[in-house]
Design a protein around this nucleic acid. Structure first.
Lengths: 145, 145
DNA sequence: TAAATATAGTTTAAGTGTATACTATCCGTG
DNA sequence: CACGGATAGTATACACTTAAACTATATTTA
């Protein structure tokens, strides 16, 4: 018989379950726009912060720069983004949303954020605030640790 | 200028940051045993619940059955698991840990759980308990919603 | 019993992700 | 100016993941 899991391990499992449940809802919504989660992340980041270089995009999305290459290739193919040479740095490319990408982002980003709010609304406002506060401090404590 | 993100969206971003920070530590530990996170999940599940069928493994790990196939192929190649025909169901395979897999799990699973506890220990015991309680209720609320 | 349906596992195609090595460009210092 | 190290992007190999189509076996039901 396996021993009962510790509180810490159960917390970590809950973490996965909660993220999986929310991600499933979010991804289903994105799928109606033929967007993958990774592509949405790029879209939303460029929507909020136009004109980023690929490395900056990778840093903000917590992925490797090599990952960004294929992602942008597919999104360029889909007509969502364009790459332009950086005016001051011959190595870099400025990534921008196309008109189509901007139009899509204008619709999808607010819907996505609304669905996030809806998922978090299964908690009471107090619980929601406490969770926000706990995770904010958790993130900070992990960075300094 | 992009508008300030809502509390809900920031909570969701914190979820990702915390998950990423902890996963990075856990994955680094697993890498010292040449284990990927996915392979560790299979190893730990079979360690706790020996003799599962592939579909049961997929259900418990929240992945598709097709995913399990390639995962087990690689782990079989590495000598960690074996597939045997199910005695009562001609379609199914019983998956078991080899002696090598069991030995590895005996060492890695406790270390992995200790590292999880260490990561969660950056929070105070009260915060840790509150987070556990919040996530447990969050998970339950998402399931019924 | 025979046919319809469901389930276990596999395969394939496509996307995601990393690490690593490579090219091109930039920048600091001698 | 030249060289040497950092940085931006790309290419490659490998692992992970899903959805969908497929095969084989089991189960239900007419």
């Amino acid at each position: 018989m396996p021993p009962r899991l510790s509180q810490e391990v159960r917390t970590w499992l809950y973490f996965h379950r909660v993220m999986a449940a929310i991600s499933q809802r979010l991804n289903a919504q994105l799928a109606t726009y033929s967007l993958t989660p990774a592509q949405f992340d790029v879209l939303a980041q460029l929507f909020r912060t136009p004109g980023l270089v690929q490395q900056a995009l990778a840093d903000r999305l917590l992925v490797s720069k090599g990952n960004i290459v294929g992602l942008l290739n597919r999104m360029e193919q889909a007509g969502l983004v364009t790459r332009q040479p950086h005016p001051e740095d011959g190595r870099a490319h400025l990534v921008s949303l196309t008109a189509h990408g901007t139009t899509l982002a204008t619709q999808v980003v607010p819907e996505h954020e609304a669905l996030i709010a809806e998922c978090l609304a299964v908690l009471s406002p107090e619980d929601g605030h406490n969770l926000h506060d706990l995770l904010r401090r958790f993130k900070h404590a992990l960075r300094t640790a």
